[in-house]
Design a protein around this nucleic acid. Structure first.
Length: 1008
RNA sequence: GCCGGGAUGGCGGAAUUGGUAGACGCGCGGGACUCAAAAUCCCGUAUCCGCAAGGAUGUGAGAGUUCAAGUCUCUCUCCCGGCACCA
């Protein structure tokens, strides 16, 4: 008898399959298509372990099963080969990433090959191939064209070890997802993809895909949509509010924002004074000051324009009274040279003006008295030449400096509706975001993030400034870590609750995050745990605005209930009030409905070499210009040093021949963008390229993609839950909007396999030294087939399990038994002596064999439909056991048709799991072609049905007997037979049967 | 804390979706073959009582619905994964 030797048959069939190309897919429209795909792997140089292999084994079983079922299966493989490992390797060894990747691909492919996976290798792609990343760049430009790729300078996560920025998704617990080092914040100009524009669709369309609840929940959570309202809280001002406007040398008539300010503030019950200076065109400081002193009351806001600015400063220091704010618009530097102005404004008495330069300013005093200081500059060059930013910056280090862009000044024709910023500074508002506007009457204080911009406008003490500074210095990680005892300080400033008009304190605390919502909250300690904690610690008032059933009075009530302490809303449910109060506040312009998201735009630029170059040219005249399509791909040049500089530039910046180019628009000397794209850009569309992998005219042909896509079975671990899977969905939607494809979700069904742990129950990893590699197991003689079998048999495919060394012996033994069973048949069939006796003489035995066959076909087919690999394999083991039993129980000739049919069916049913042994046995059984393209066997329902069935008899729910009855037994007969059974009769013993239930084919239940 | 998923023999796991709990595999025990070992084959294997026939208990805990619950409902405990001061 031939021995089962996987070392011989496995390489043999792998070579045959490669040659015969039986796994190549074509757009054959006569068969239903099925696209089976695993996440395309990073081709690492190391050996795969059995955990990696499970992914592919699952995909291959699905692909093979469906191929045999008659589907047109696309099952491709490719390489996601950009990224840091190859680049870091290059830095260490000097071997170029191009070279290292080619070697790794070869290594990885060989390992997949020896497992016998049925990939269509004619469609192999590699993300680092210029013919591939050409189209990644093309998609970048598509996003750019659609306004979805933009550049912005901002604080970004920076990994000091990998020396590159990271997307939010790539920071885990304050550490780099790749190297695990703590990340920092760094201000850099970076490219972003505007994934936030798609936040709603990305969240909503999760309802339309067949993914696990876990992954969908992770994505929803990451997108973090929350419905709420934005509400304005104004800063509290004392009863009588006053604004003193000091106009400039050219007089109030021309500066038409005075009347506008007067009417705007006047309508809000402000007193606006615009004193008419005695001689506007011939300023005499003493007279001006006399007039102003008469009008100025302590606590007013002073607004000075142009030459009115030094006049206002003079007023402050001579009046020696505190102002509530100082606003300087286009302020004149009294010390400056007036000569060129003389030419422009000859009518002005410049000798008089020069007198302002003689004033001695006590800057410390002015700073102390001024309150919050805001200084506006105009971009109108007339004014820039007059006013001096440096001068004022030097003397007002804590002031806010702003440009007023283009509007308003000297615009005598249009009505004055400009300078809303000035109003904001006179009467600043704080916007808060809340999901519980129904608790607004309980908002007893406001809390600002330390980074909140309005803090620059408020007059705050040193203590508060110190707190802000210290909070900003604390890294984000520190702010996220540990027990987080609440800290904060009172700003000394109050706000007005727009609902009940109550004066509430404004606090600064780092538990409010600057990046979410408006960076400010209305704190409702009675109904929010964090606010509760804060209020308890700092002894702030807690006002309940609803009652909640079964609530713990020592905690915040965060549920729903009936509203109280809320004026006209009392008695409503919280959800009713939620709607009403926002509507009411909106009528007064103090609130609006608002949806907020946690997701941020996708930061895609990387300051590293080994990635697809961003196809942009920076021109001093035209700005960021797209590389024209005809110039794609922008090929990554071979360079000498791969070391990133760490100063925010990629190593490409040191390649002048790459950097220095001409602007495609104006041909001026320009510079190429030197950042490369995040590797996730390449993996956001590779599944489309597989449909048309060699197209050099387009990224893909639409009809081909529409034929194969979306992916029917996408198989992979949960590690991509929010990164790759979100990005790929985003790109797909953009392409759908661009009408490049006809679907907007790329992966219909996502299948998250469970992990294979090491036999010790720990995660398999090199550092634990507990990895198990198929490579070794194959060398030991187990063969790919028994490894594959165990990968699936070890438990449900979507559940984790520890690898079992003994278990592998089990699946190997099973294959051995299968092999032997068929060899025995072959040996006997060959020996002519036995030929005379046939199984055909024993019809009953033949039927018995066929029943076993058809029951197994049915069981395996049904289990495979639900991906029940483990139970399918169990059924096949049982089947082989049964065949052995039949063989030993009944002494018959194996060389018969029925027996042969049973064995043929066995090779087919086992083929998706153990492709090599089944192919070998299929051939030995004399079948033509490949078992893998044979038709999956069908079962005959007649043969599946049993003639006799076992019926259990329960008395009061306890099984007391088993009956063997004909399959077509009626209810009456079954119940009668049950009562007549000896054991049952004994149990009934004269008691009356109150109720008898018959479950067809299963049991009789008697109640006594 | 919130979200998602779990808990069944010594172990991995089955159970037609409310109908005989423990399929299949591992491990273990016994036997056959062998001088012996390995390999292979056969038998047994939830727990407790019993020589057996048989009986009792049993799916994380507790309650409930039902003729019947691993499966449905409620309460709780523990484990795994994700998120985490997101207002």
């Amino acid at each position: 008898m031939k021995r089962y030797n996987p070392k011989v048959i496995e390489p043999k069939w792998q070579a045959v399959w490669e040659k015969s190309k039986i796994y190549q897919a074509t757009e054959d429209k006569t068969k239903p298509k099925r696209y089976v795909l695993e996440y395309f792997p990073y081709p690492s140089g190391a050996a795969m372990h059995v955990g990696h292999v499970r992914n592919y084994t699952i995909g291959d079983a699905i692909a093979r099963y469906n191929r045999m079922r008659g589907d047109n299966v696309l099952y491709p493989m490719g390489w996601d080969a950009f990224g840091l490992p190859a680049e870091n390797y290059a830095i260490k060894t000097g071997i170029s990433p191009q070279e290292a990747v080619a070697k790794n691909v070869e290594n990885f492919k060989q390992q997949l090959m020896q497992m016998g996976f049925s990939y269509d290798w004619s469609r192999e792609i590699n993300s680092t191939d210029p013919s591939y990343y050409k189209w990644t760049q093309w998609f970048f430009l598509l996003l750019h064209k659609r306004g979805l790729a933009y550049q912005e300078e901002s604080l970004q996560w920076w990994c000091p070890f990998d020396k590159t920025v990271l997307a939010n998704e790539q920071v885990e617990d304050g550490r780099c997802w790749r190297c695990g080092n703590l990340v920092e914040k760094k201000a850099l100009k970076q490219w972003f993809f505007k994934i936030t524009d798609y936040a709603d669709r990305l969240a909503d369309d999760l309802d339309n895909v067949n993914w696990s609840e876990a992954i969908k929940a992770m994505q929803r959570n990451w997108i973090g949509r929350s419905q709420g309202a934005e509400i304005d809280f104004s800063i509290y001002e004392k009863e009588k509010k006053e604004c003193l406007v000091v106009h400039g040398v050219s007089g109030h008539k021309r500066e038409n924002w005075f009347p506008w300010l007067k009417s705007t503030l006047g309508s809000k019950n402000w007193i606006v004074k615009v004193p008419n200076m005695p001689t506007p065109d011939h300023p005499k400081i003493e007279e001006w000051n006399k007039t102003l002193l008469g009008e100025f009351e302590e606590g007013a806001i002073i607004a000075g324009h142009s030459l009115g600015a030094p006049a206002a400063l003079n007023l402050l220091q001579t009046a020696n009274k505190k102002a509530d704010g100082l606003i300087l618009v286009a302020p004149v530097n009294p010390r400056q040279d007036w000569r060129h102005l003389k030419l422009k404004y000859p009518e002005v008495n410049w000798d008089a003006v020069r007198k302002f330069a003689e004033i001695k300013f006590d800057w410390e005093k002015i700073n102390r008295l001024a309150g919050r200081i805001t200084i506006y500059y105009s971009d109108n060059d007339k004014y820039i030449s007059v006013s001096s930013i440096d001068f004022y910056k030097k003397h007002f280090p804590n002031a806010t400096f702003k440009f007023l862009i283009g509007k308003g000044h000297f615009n005598e024709s249009s009505g004055m509706t400009e300078f809303p910023e000035i109003i904001d500074n006179i009467e600043p508002k704080i916007k808060v975001f809340t999901t519980r506007p129904d608790t607004i009457y309980g908002a007893t204080f406001l809390v600002l993030a330390p980074e909140h911009k309005i803090l620059n406008k408020l007059s705050i003490s040193k203590e508060v400034k110190d707190y802000i500074e210290q909070a900003e210095r604390k890294s984000e990680i520190d702010r996220m870590e540990t027990e987080r005892e609440k800290t904060g300080v009172f700003t000394g400033v109050y706000a007005v609750n727009p609902a009940n008009k109550e004066k509430i304190p404004i606090w600064v605390a780092d538990y409010v995050l600057p990046g979410y919502g408006t960076g400010a909250i209305m704190a409702v300690p009675a109904h929010d745990e964090r606010d509760w904690e804060f209020a308890k610690k700092f002894d702030l008032p807690i006002v309940q605005t609803f009652d909640q059933k079964d609530a713990d009075p020592k905690q915040a009530y965060t549920g729903e209930g009936i509203v109280k302490n809320s004026g006209k809303y009392n008695g409503m449910t919280t959800s009713e009030m939620r709607e009403n109060v926002v509507k009411d506040l909106a009528k007064r312009g103090q609130a609006k409905e608002k949806v907020n998201y946690k997701i941020r735009d996708w930061l895609i630029s990387r300051q590293r070499y080994w990635g697809a170059p961003i196809p942009i040219i920076h021109c001093p005249k035209d700005g960021a210009v797209a590389v024209p399509d005809k110039d794609l791909p922008v090929v990554l040049p071979e360079i000498k040093s791969y070391e990133p500089s760490g100063d925010g530039h990629s190593p490409l910046a040191n390649a002048p021949e790459f950097v220095n180019v001409k602007c495609p628009k104006c041909s001026a000397a320009a510079k190429r963008e030197t950042d490369t794209m995040d590797g996730f850009a390449c993996s956001s569309w590779y599944f489309l390229r597989f449909a048309d992998p060699h197209n050099d005219k387009k990224a893909f042909d639409k009809t081909k993609v529409d034929f194969w896509l979306p992916v029917d079975d996408y198989i992979g671990g949960a590690e991509h839950a929010v990164m790759h899977l979100l990005y790929a969905r985003f790109w797909t939607k953009v392409m759908y909007d661009e009408k490049l494809i006809d679907f907007d979700e790329p992966f219909t069904t996502l299948r998250n396999h469970g992990m294979i742990l090491a036999p010790d129950g720990k995660k398999m990893s090199k550092s634990w030294n507990n990895t198990i590699e198929p490579d070794n197991l194959i060398k030991q003689g187990y063969g790919a087939d028994s490894i594959r079998l165990l990968e699936l048999f070890i438990g449900p495919w979507n559940q984790s399990a520890a690898w079992s060394v003994e278990g592998l012996g089990g699946t190997y033994r099973f294959l051995q038994r299968t092999w032997t069973l068929i060899q025995e048949f072959l040996d006997e069939a060959k020996s002519k002596k036995q030929k005379a006796k046939s199984i055909g003489h024993n019809a009953e035995l033949e039927t018995q064999i066929m029943r076993t066959v058809h029951k197994t076909i049915k069981k395996v087919s049904q289990d495979m439909q639900e991906l029940g690999f483990n139970t399918s394999i169990a059924a096949l083991m049982e089947y082989v056991n049964n065949l052995y039993k039949l063989k030993s129980k009944h002494n018959f000739t194996l060389a018969s048709e029925a027996w042969k049919d049973a064995l043929i069916a066995l090779t087919q049913l086992l083929a998706p799991f153990a492709p090599h042994i089944t192919e070998e046995l299929w051939a030995e059984l004399g079948q033509s072609g490949s078992v893998h393209v044979s038709n999956w066997p069908a079962w005959n329902e007649e043969l599946v049905k049993e003639e006799l069935i076992t019926i259990a008899v329960q008395i009061n729910g306890k099984v007391r007997a088993e009956l063997l009855l004909p399959a077509d037994v009626t209810e009456e007969e079954a119940i009668k037979a049950a009562k007549n059974d000896e054991k049952v009769a004994k149990n009934l013993a004269g008691k009356k049967v109150k109720k008898a239930i018959y479950v067809p084919g299963r049991l009789v239940s008697l109640v006594i």
